[in-house]
Structure formats: C-alpha cells, structure tokens
Design a protein around this nucleic acid. Structure first.
Lengths: 224, 224
DNA sequence: TCCTCGACGATCAGAATGCGCATGGAATAA
DNA sequence: TTATTCCATGCGCATTCTGATCGTCGAGGA
C-alpha cells in the first residue's frame, strides 16, 4: 500500500513517513501544496494524509482540485486548530476522514487502515484467500491457522493482492503500490517475491496470468 | 484492439505504450504530428490517444485532418493542465474524450475501454455471445458460467469478434487489429487461433463465412 | 443428380520465441 | 554479524508461429 503525506511541518512530516514505513507502507512525503497536488495527480496512491494548513496552496484547495480531476483515493485530513468548521469544510470538500492535531500516531494508522480497507471494498480487517489469512491490524499472516513469518516486502505484496482479490494485477501496478516514488522499474524483484511467497504459502495461492500479471482468485476450477 | 498513441514526450510515450500493451492492446506509438497523422490515415485503429502539444503539426490540426478525411475512430485528447480552452476546442474539433495531464494511467485505461465499448455500440463492460461471456474489466471469460482460461492472443481475437458481433470480420481485419504495425500478413495464425478458441468454447461459437472471414452471430439462418 | 476438380479453411506437429522462475551472490539495512 | 532486498544469469516451459497435410465446400460439366 502506497501513501502520500502532504505536511509542511519539518518534524512531523518525516516522523510520520518513518512511522508509516515501519508499518509496512510505501510513503511519499510532500511539503507543499503544489508539489503535493502534482504527486497526487500523477502517481497512484492507496490513501493520502493531507494537512489543511499548508503554505502556498491551501490543503482544501488541493483536495478540491483532486476531486475535480476525478481522483478517488481516500483522503484523511489533518488540521491544527480546534477547527470544528474546518472539519465540516473538509468533509464537504471530499475528505473521507478527519483527525485533529495533536493526535497519536496509533490512531492515525488505525484510521488509515480503515480507509484503505473500505476503499478496496473489504469489510473486515482480516483478508482471506483459501488457507491464507492476513490480519491488517496485527500484520500477522497465517496458513491453515499456523503463523507464517513474512518479510516486509513479501507482506506488502501479499497485502496488495489480497486487497484486490479477483482482479488481475499487473507487475507495473504492483511496483507502483509497493515502492515509493523513485524506484527502477526494470527489474524482476516482483517475480522474486512472488516466488518467495509461494514457497512459504504454497504455490497455488498466487496465480500467474501470463503476459498480464498476477491474481489471487483461481481463474479456473469452480464447480456448480 | 489496436491503439495509436501520438505523444512526443520521450518518457511518457513509451511508458504508455508499455502499459497499454500489458493490458492486452496492440499499440503503435508516434512521436510527431506528421507521422501520427499518416498512421491514423492509413492504418485501422480502434482508438487514438492524441497529445495536443506536439511539435511540427498541432494535435488539433491532426485531429481535424482525420475527421475531414472521414476517420471515425474515437480519439482521446491529452492536454496540459490549465488548458480549459483546449478542452473546449478539442471536443469541438471532434475529440471523443478528454484527459488533463498529469493523469493516472488507470484512468486512461478505463476511459479508453469506455470509448472502444461505446464506439462498438456496446453499453455494458460485459460482452455476451450465446453461452460465452467476456468481462472487459477483469479480462475474464466464462462458458456457461464456468471460467475458461484463454491465452493472450486468443483473448484478443475473441474480444475483437465480440466487439463486432454480427458483423463479418475478415482475416485481414483481424490481423490488423490484433497485431501492431509490423507483422507478416501472410500466415495462417488467425486460423490457428480460431481453432484453439473453438476447442475451448465449442465449435459453434465462431461461424466461418467462406471467402469472407468469421462472424459471431450467424447473420443468416435464424428460425421463426 | 452425381462426379471431379480447385480453392479455401482446419488441423496438426515441430520450431522458435519470449516470459516467468529459480538461484546465487552483491548490496544494503538492521 | 545477520537478515533482507535487489540484481544478473541461465533454464524451462507455455505460447506463438510456421509449414505441411488433410478435409470440405462449391462450381461446373456430364
């Protein structure tokens, strides 16, 4: 899952980025409205954390532009003030959730998780595909009930596939959502991690659609 | 489905081509207006992605020329962000849809899909012929509800026939729309793939019109 | 109506291609 | 150091293409 943070405070921004990365997200950080807007318009994010009090362009304006341009990613709005009116304005302006500063990072993470879950149409925090279960809250993965130890990247990849179960996910899409902005697209890392995951969880968990990408639901073999 | 991209930016162009090819399209890329116009005038495309800001000849001019020459393929116009007037001019000039740069590739793909669907007169993303169903969004094919695994080329061929249900499609037309520019036209690959598809989906799905080509609905021979 | 012939399409098997997989080792982070 | 991630290489196999052969349809003549 890839997240954009638009936050100008010099300490809070990097700190958030760090925390979220430790929680298994790929994070891009932007410190002003213009750059932030550009990133949100070009790159493909699973969620955005947007501070309303930005220099240059106001956060609400950025949000409005995104929505006008048809961007649908969930946006979590941060505001400094007691800003009750800000909250209203934010939600009206197309925000999906709202958090008043100061806040505890734990809460931010919980809310982000919920946003991403909702956006991908899942109702539970536990994602299931056959014998594999992934709990987005604890970050644990089990196979037939047995806990399995996944590395960070393995987890990210599996998580993204689980969030888009049934859909064919191209290698490009995986790269875009697992890594942040600057990453060399010409490599076979995705294949490597798919191989690793298959070794740990069984080879039939992830289906290869040759020439297109990977998928989680088995495309053939249902009966009735 | 075959698509022409006219885009001069050295990174965006190839990247788009790559993405679209991963999504099962045959793609030709042209980097300037003159060449682009020539391709659009001579070859047969299912849709065109046209950047307005081109060197030499302006994109709008190219579009105008095509329309004057009687080209009817749907055109998706790309323009720089502020270009509100560009949008109006583009739509007036015969464009079918409009996307402001920067944009997300996902959205481009979705819009292209919609354009091609509309151009072929289909209203749903699901194409149906008898017991066969093809969902253009997920790329899945089912026979009597059972999922069927098709290879990339098989899928392209079937997809084109479904988009032109009822029409007799010549072998040449199929080759032109399934492969990109440079492909040896003298081969019997089409026959081979028709055979393969018939094996997977039943021999009565595709009707042979001797001397002309293939067809999906039998144009003659309904009863009652 | 039947037969013959020619042309076109269908099918098959082998060859070639290219994609995806696996592995080991280098680079990096913890 | 140890674990993880990344990269490069070679290999295997599914897919695609080619060429040859077989089958079938239809026209024309008797």
């Amino acid at each position: 899952m890839r997240i954009l943070i638009v936050e100008d405070e010099p300490t809070l921004g990097p700190q958030l980025k760090n925390t979220l990365e430790q929680n298994g997200y790929a994070v891009d950080l932007s410190t002003d409205g213009e750059d932030g807007h550009f990133l949100g318009a070009t790159e493909d994010y699973d969620a955005v954390v947007l501070d309303l009090g930005l220099p240059e362009i106001d956060g609400l304006t950025v949000l409005g532009m995104w929505r006008k341009e048809g961007r649908t990613f969930p946006v979590l709005v941060l505001t400094a003030r007691d800003g009750w009116s800000d909250k209203v304005a934010g939600l009206d302006g197309g925000a999906d959730d709202y958090l008043a500063k100061p806040f505890q990072t734990e809460e931010l993470i919980a809310r982000l998780r919920a946003l991403i879950r909702r956006a991908s149409g899942n109702s539970s925090s536990e994602l299931i595909a056959g014998p594999v279960r992934l709990d987005t809250r604890s970050g644990r993965v089990t196979l037939d009930g047995e806990p399995v130890k996944l590395t960070a990247q393995e987890y990210k990849l599996l998580s993204y596939l689980l969030h888009h179960k049934g859909k064919v996910v191209s290698r490009t899409e995986l790269i875009e959502h697992i890594y942040d902005q600057d990453f060399d697209r010409d490599s076979n890392t995705i294949e490597v991690f798919v191989t690793r995951i298959r070794k740990k969880l069984g080879s039939d968990v992830i289906t290869t659609i040759r020439g297109l990408g990977y998928s989680l639901d088995e495309p053939v073999g249902q009966r009735g």
